[in-house]
Amino acid sequence: MGSIDSLYDKVKRFVIEFTSGKGTSSAMTGYMTGELQTVAFIMILASFFRIFSVPLGIVLLAAVVGALFFFGPMIKAMERENSSGLNRVLFWVMIYFAVIIAVTLWG
């Protein structure tokens, strides 16, 4: 069992993971709210799959919840993927387009 100290350390480490560089508390609130929002949004998205079949939706929801706990702060990855670098945008546009075509053509 960890002491109070180590729990504090754990929380601190987790929180610091959110921001890179100099974290101010006004930036931190943004990141932490963003994280919570993302988690909620992703869970809602997973639950959308109930329109295909309800069990699939439940399984997916469980999987997503597990993945979220496992991968830690999602917000960093999200911020990285949302940079306006041309390569990244191009990559995501291609993925989107492929998904749209795949879903409509063979869905």
Binding site: M94, I95, A98, I101, L105
Partner: peptide
């Protein structure tokens, strides 16, 4: 992943 996506696009457009 990008290559796979491009291939899907290519197949779709060419069909």
């Amino acid at each position: 992943i990008a290559v796979i996506a491009l291939m899907i696009i290519f197949v779709g457009v060419s069909t």
